[in-house]
């Protein structure tokens, strides 16, 4: 039991993610998360603005259960399964972050500098999260998949378009961290 409460190493987590992929396919669905953003748009009434969203979301009603499960899973982990906190990151990374004005805090998943109440009530903080969200939503739908749909499902099925997408994920990620972060923060 105790080992379950420690942070999980990559060689436990990775194989478990493949079990999730297995369960999706076993129960007749494709493994992917970003298409749910579209489904939520349709439910919110986006079909009134574009035919693209004229889809019967009830065919994907099962996905609402999955999304609700994600939230509950996060809550269970946070409430019952993380008494020892979260592993610390590379000290070199902490130094790099300090140079950008990020003060590393133990046992949090997200930095105050982007997610605290004070930050999101500031214009810059609010815009950063909205813009990041737009990039995520637009990018994943344009690419037709995210980390689960392309990186896990697509790569394991040897799909070349998915490899191209994952290369894109890294081009974008590296540009953001190495080129844009020093401009945004410091």
């Amino acid at each position: 039991m105790d080992i379950l409460l420690q942070p999980w190493p990559w060689y436990v987590s990775g194989p478990l993610i493949s079990v999730i992929l297995f369960l999706f396919f076993y129960y007749g669905k494709h493994f992917g998360v970003s298409s749910n953003l579209e489904t939520l748009c349709t439910i919110a009434g986006a079909d009134k603005f574009s035919d693209y969203f004229k889809k019967n979301w009830r065919k994907r009603d099962w996905a609402l259960f999955f999304l609700t499960g994600l939230i509950i899973g996060g809550f269970i982990s946070n409430t019952f399964l993380t008494p020892y906190g979260i592993d610390t990151i590379n000290p070199k990374t902490i130094e790099d972050l300090q140079a950008l004005g990020f003060e590393y805090q133990k046992n949090t998943y997200v930095p105050e500098e982007l997610f605290s109440l004070d930050t999101i009530l500031s214009v810059k903080g609010f815009l950063l999260l909205i813009v990041a969200g737009i990039l995520i939503g637009f990018g994943t739908r344009y690419a037709d998949g995210c980390t689960s749909g392309h990186a896990i499902t697509g790569l394991s099925n040897l799909q070349l378009p998915s490899l191209v997408a994952v290369i894109g994920f890294f081009i974008g990620g590296l540009i953001m961290i190495w080129l844009i972060f020093p401009l945004l923060f410091s």
Partner: peptide
């Protein structure tokens, strides 16, 4: 699309 997503993934 992948590159656009990558920008947001890294930022958020």
């Amino acid at each position: 699309g992948g590159t656009i997503f990558g920008l947001g993934w890294a930022l958020a």
